[in-house]
């Protein structure tokens, strides 16, 4: 269902929908949106169930952390405790506050993964170039970097290894391998741009992948934010 939506229309719809969701504070709206996103994910052919499950673990954890913070340290409870000069103890009202915060983060994350897991990177860039006027150079630079990801990771491992064989210890956030990588990236960017331009790369490049906006794309871009607004401001 969501796979065939034009990526630019999907971006606009999801972005405005997310911002409207940010203005609503009901846990019921958050839950309905999360369920709707789950429906998008389940019906998508691009969603890998294993990847989805792996992503759901940190999402649930973060939502739980917000739930506990909202429950134990709610703003109203803090004001009450300050007024009475007493130690705060969570009540039923605070539980709802936690629920609102937890489901809020969960629904944002569900909207996020229903966008990122169902969008093809090549279609996204092609659509941004054709419909959102993204510069051709920027689009192809992103695709180049994406395709070089594994090579960059290998280079980073090699620079760490190069330091270790010289008996120089490398800590998790050490700047030494980072510094080596920065130098390599400056050089790579120079060589890659030369190579691409020598092959005739320019802003006038014709793209094989043609993305179009259809009626259902407009319906999605307008419909999703409208649905969230109706749920948030009229139904609940």
């Amino acid at each position: 269902m969501i796979d065939s939506i034009n990526p630019t229309a999907k971006t606009i719809g999801t972005l405005i929908g997310t911002l409207i969701l940010g203005l609503t504070f009901q846990w019921q709206v958050n839950s309905v949106v999360a369920l709707l996103c789950l429906l998008f994910l389940v019906t998508s052919k691009r969603t890998n169930p294993t990847t989805l499950l792996k992503i759901m673990v940190p999402i649930t954890l973060i939502s739980l952390s917000y739930f506990f913070t909202g429950w134990i340290f709610s703003s109203e409870q803090a004001l009450f405790a300050l007024a009475n000069n007493s130690v705060p103890s969570p009540s039923g009202k605070d539980f709802v506050n936690g629920l609102k915060l937890g489901t809020r983060i969960f629904s944002f994350a569900m909207l996020g993964i229903s966008y990122s897991l169902t969008t093809d990177p090549h279609e996204l860039i092609a659509s941004f170039i054709q419909q959102a006027r993204m510069p051709m150079k920027m689009g192809y630079a992103i695709l180049t970097a994406i395709n070089l990801t594994s090579l960059i990771q290998r280079e980073r491992d090699n620079s760490k290894l190069a330091l270790q064989v010289r008996n120089i210890p490398v800590k998790p956030f050490d700047t030494k391998p980072m510094f080596t990588m920065m130098i390599r990236m400056v050089r790579w960017s120079e060589r890659l741009s030369l190579a691409m331009e020598s092959k005739g790369f320019s802003e006038d490049r014709v793209m094989q992948m043609q993305m179009t906006i259809k009626r259902r794309d407009i319906l999605f871009a307008v419909g999703l934010p409208m649905l969230i607004a109706i749920l948030g401001f009229a139904v609940f």
Binding site: P58, P135, K137, M138, Y140, A141, I142, T144, A145, I146, L148, T149, I152, Q153, R156, P172, F173, M178, M181, M182, M185, V186, W188, S189, E190, L192, S193, M196, E197, F201
Partner: peptide, 26 residues
Amino acid sequence: LTLRDYLLMALISVVFGVLYLMAVYA
């Protein structure tokens, strides 16, 4: 901005992507 500038930005973003991932785990 030239093609080289865009490439540098994208490549550095990927390098930091690894660091971002480590930060996410931590």
